[in-house]
């Protein structure tokens, strides 16, 4: 055990610096636990989105005609732009983690804020898309019309899935922005350094995961089965 090896004063200092909580023996154990916990949480997220992907796969094969006809309402340019924006935000997030690992406080804050800007741009573009759906009467259940009318119900299901999946994704983005705000405040107070950056790393994992969900949503919702 570390207790016998290190003089008490130094150990206390180290525990303070690495924000070691009382029930862990070493900072390494604490980081290991946090990493495994975060990945386990991401697995639950995979299955959470997985339920919607399953429903999507089933209805897409069940109603291919209706599915193809909905494609003209999906704006590939906006979807593609959003994909690029998210990829950029993932890069800045990865750079932020790197800055934290190197104890570069200013870089860390800079990259975190850049990530937040990209995230906000994504949500704004998403908002534009949603607004277009509202204008085109393509909000299932509330404001929905469809031509040809025999596709009405089936198209409504597919638009519902579009809103479920992108909506759930957008909620995750909003949560992510909240977490990033917390990180910026903590980084500004100088909490993170080469020996303690687990929160940056964990929230980074979350952010990348949300990016991955979009990487699958983009081709599935915007690209496939489209007539041009």
């Amino acid at each position: 055990m570390a207790e016998t090896l290190v003089p008490a004063g130094q150990e206390e200092l180290e525990a303070q610096e690495t924000h070691l909580r009382h029930h862990f023996a070493t900072p390494e154990q604490q980081t290991d636990a946090a990493t495994l916990g975060m990945w386990t949480f991401l697995i639950t997220e995979v299955l959470f989105f997985g339920g919607m992907f399953t429903a999507y796969a089933i209805y897409r094969t069940m109603y291919p005609g209706a599915f193809a006809s909905t494609s003209e309402f999906m704006d590939v340019r906006l979807g593609g732009a959003n994909t690029a924006v998210l990829i950029c935000s993932s890069l800045t997030m990865a750079l932020a983690v790197r800055a934290a690992q190197l104890s570069r406080r200013k870089d860390l804050i800079r990259f975190l804020i850049l990530t937040m800007i990209f995230g906000t741009v994504f949500l704004v573009i998403k908002g534009i898309e949603y607004h277009a759906k509202w204008v085109e009467y393509k909000v299932p259940g509330f404001r929905f019309t469809y031509e040809p009318s025999y596709y009405f119900h089936h198209a409504q299901i597919l638009f519902s899935l579009y809103f479920y999946m992108t909506g759930m994704h957008a909620i995750h983005m909003v949560v992510g922005l909240g977490l990033l705000t917390y990180l910026v405040i903590q980084a500004w107070r100088g909490i993170f350094h080469a020996r303690y950056f687990a929160p940056v790393e964990m929230i980074g994992l979350y952010w990348h995961f949300v990016d991955i969900v979009w990487i699958f949503l983009f081709p599935l919702l915007y690209l496939i089965g489209h007539k041009r």
């Binding site: 697995i43 639950t44 299955l47 997985g50 339920g51 259940g141 479920y164």
Partner: peptide
């Protein structure tokens, strides 16, 4: 961990 999220999303779909 592996099962419960699916229940969550199913109930959300139902509620919607």
């Amino acid at each position: 961990v592996l099962g419960t999220p699916v229940l969550a999303i199913t109930l959300l779909l139902l509620a919607f």
